[in-house]
Design a protein around this nucleic acid. Structure first.
Lengths: 133, 133
DNA sequence: CTTGACCTTAGATGTTACTCTAAGGTTTAT
DNA sequence: ATAAACCTTAGAGTAACATCTAAGGTCAAG
């Protein structure tokens, strides 16, 4: 199949597929006489693998590492995949914690402010951000 | 005070302060004879305002809008600040929801995998990412 | 009076993940 | 046969937020 067919099947744009190729994540099995990229069903699996990896929060660099495991399983061990997964869980937990801190600060600010058409002269959101800590 | 003093007091690098100036967020009140940036205590307040705004999750562009309110309060109303705050809370809630989805997917993958020195041939993390959906 | 710390500028670089453009060649359907 | 749809490439642009570099000027202390 050509690139647009792969794009449709994996739900990734053709542009992005070429970009992934440039990064070495997804090389077409062969080229047609007219130099078009020709993909196989295996490439569809790989493309979806990349997509799911991204949906789990892995960067493209990390996805590249996971692909290396996938593409040569006998040369890798479970610990590699599990360690990456565990680290990512920790990383995501930290991000969630940070966002929750932001959220609660914002909620404190939100309830203080009347939100009306009054001049911002005494707006508690602004004055709280101004406050010298 | 000069830039390094402001940097220390606001806990922002001198580089970043110059960058903020380029974006129009924080202009020094005046320049010394030798063209050094001279800051006042008000500039320290503004620098800290920017820092706190960022800690609440506002981008520099949004921070710029908040600064415009702060710097000319009589021309603005509470609703502006409150709307920005409410939108940001929604935005952050969505980010948290997304991260939680990632987290639970990762946790499902993590418990399935033995994590040992076994070959990745049957690694359930890899095979789950490979699975055609 | 000189050394080291501090200051200046424009502009390049880095990160992540695309997204788009220009200029052109190929294929397919009517 | 010709128009529409598809393909190719290198490289530029975007977003967000810095961070660094080079090449040089200024200032305070010993």
């Amino acid at each position: 199949m050509k690139i647009s067919e792969l794009a449709k099947r994996a739900d990734i744009s053709a542009h992005t597929i070429r970009y992934y190729e440039k990064l070495g994540l997804l090389k077409p099995t062969q080229r047609s006489e007219s130099n078009y990229r020709i993909y196989t069903n295996d490439d569809v699996v790989t493309a979806k693998f990349i997509k799911r990896s991204k949906e789990c929060g892995f960067s493209l660099a990390e996805t590249s590492t996971l692909l290396a495991i996938k593409n040569d399983k006998s040369q890798h061990v479970c610990a590699e995949a599990k360690n990456m997964t565990s680290s990512k869980i920790v990383e995501i937990s930290e991000q969630i914690a940070k966002l929750k801190r932001m959220q609660s600060t914002l909620q404190e600010l939100e309830v203080l402010c009347c939100g009306g058409q009054e001049s911002a002269e005494f707006c508690s959101i602004i004055s709280n951000l101004e406050k010298v800590v």
